[in-house]
C-alpha cells in the first residue's frame, strides 16, 4: 500500500466546476477528515477518490483495491434484516457470531433479525457503518457517517469506528468540527484548490 495521490484533478457538473486542479497527498493507514459546509464538493471528492466518479482531468493513484463506503444515504435492502444486509457484502468471510458481535457493539442485538424497513434512521445508519467495517477493507470511505445519531449513540458509534479503523486508510467527510476532532488525523478544509498535503 502507499499514499493516495491526486494530481491536478478537476471535476465539473455541467457549467458548475466543483473541483479545480486539485493536487493532494492522503497518507495511508491514517484518518483524513474532509471538512466544509454543505454543497462545497466534499462528497464529490470522496466519490472521485473511491472511483465512483471519474475526474474530467488529472489522475488519482494509490487507492487500495479493497474499499468500503458509507454512502450519504444508507443504501440498505429494506426487506432484509440488518444481519442479512451485512452478510450480503461479507459473504462467508465473516461468521454469523462475528457479525452479531459487531451489531452488539452498536447496540443493535435486539433488532438484528428485523427487516431494515422497521428501523429508525439512526439504526439504519449504524447498520450501514457496520456493513462497511465488517467488509474488512483496506480503505474506508465515510460520507457523514454519524448523521442523524443522538449524542450518546454518536459517541458509541465513533468509538466503534475508531476501534476498527486503526491501521486502515480512512477518508471521512463531515461538516461537524467536533466529529473531526474526535476521530483525529489529518484535516482537509474546503474550499480546496491548487496543491496541498
Amino acid at each position: 500500500m502507499s499514499d493516495i495521490l491526486l494530481d491536478r484533478v478537476s471535476k465539473s457538473f455541467g457549467e458548475n466546476r466543483i473541483i479545480s486542479n486539485l493536487s493532494l497527498r492522503i497518507p495511508e493507514k491514517s484518518v483524513t477528515c474532509i471538512l466544509g459546509p454543505s454543497g462545497c464538493g466534499k462528497t464529490t471528492l470522496l466519490n472521485l477518490i473511491a472511483g465512483i466518479l471519474s475526474p474530467d482531468s488529472g489522475t488519482i493513484t494509490g487507492v487500495p483495491e479493497k474499499r468500503s463506503f458509507v454512502f450519504q444515504e444508507d443504501r440498505l435492502c429494506e426487506d432484509f434484516s440488518g444481519y442479512r444486509n451485512i452478510r450480503l457484502v461479507t459473504g462467508n468471510k465473516r461468521s454469523k457470531e462475528d457479525i452479531h458481535r459487531h451489531l452488539a457493539e452498536l447496540s443493535l442485538s435486539e433488532e438484528r433479525e428485523k427487516p431494515v424497513r422497521e428501523y429508525s434512521g439512526g439504526m439504519k445508519r449504524r447498520i450501514a457503518l457496520a456493513r462497511a467495517i465488517c467488509y474488512d477493507a483496506d480503505c474506508i470511505f465515510l460520507d457523514e457517517p454519524f448523521k442523524g445519531l443522538d449524542p450518546d449513540r454518536k459517541k458509541e458509534t465513533m468509538d466503534y469506528v475508531r476501534r476498527y479503523t486503526e491501521s486502515k486508510t480512512v477518508l471521512f467527510v463531515t461538516h461537524d468540527e467536533s466529529e473531526a476532532e474526535y476521530l483525529g488525523g489529518l484535516r482537509l478544509s474546503f474550499p480546496l484548490t491548487g496543491s496541498g498535503n
Binding site: S68, F69, F71, E73, R75, V89
Partner: peptide, 14 residues
C-alpha cells in the same frame, strides 16, 4: 434502485 446496484458493484457482490 440504481444506488443499491452501485453498492453491489462497490462491494463486488457476485
Amino acid at each position: 434502485d440504481p444506488k443499491l446496484n452501485e453498492v453491489a458493484s462497490f462491494y463486488r457482490i457476485p
